[in-house]
Amino acid sequence: MGKKFMVKFYSYLREKYSSHSGGEEVIIIDNDGDYTIEDLKKQYDFIPGEIGCVILNKQMAEDDAIIQDGNLVEIFPFFGGG
């Protein structure tokens, strides 16, 4: 069955990691096993320190959070104090 979910990049991460101008990507995973935020991060060539918070269905998500079918993952760039 697999699962299908949406990833949304914010700000300049869009131009780096999304092929769509709105920064939204639909991801389809074929296998049925657990798929975590960490697994998702591995799909991209993020520079260490580039990613700030990751939000999974409006909740703060750690790397071990499991993404379910139909979820929305929002990825923000790091902001270290302005």
């Binding site: 914010y10 700000s11 300049y12 260490p48 700030g52 923000f76 760039p77 902001f79």
Partner: peptide, 24 residues
């Protein structure tokens, strides 16, 4: 090549608005 310096260049500090809001 430095993610934090490049981020500041690209968005300025105003990105804090979206980032802190998302982070609660």
């Amino acid at each position: 090549n430095h993610p934090l310096s490049w981020g500041l260049h690209r968005t300025g500090t105003a990105i804090g608005m979206e980032a802190f809001n998302a982070a609660g």
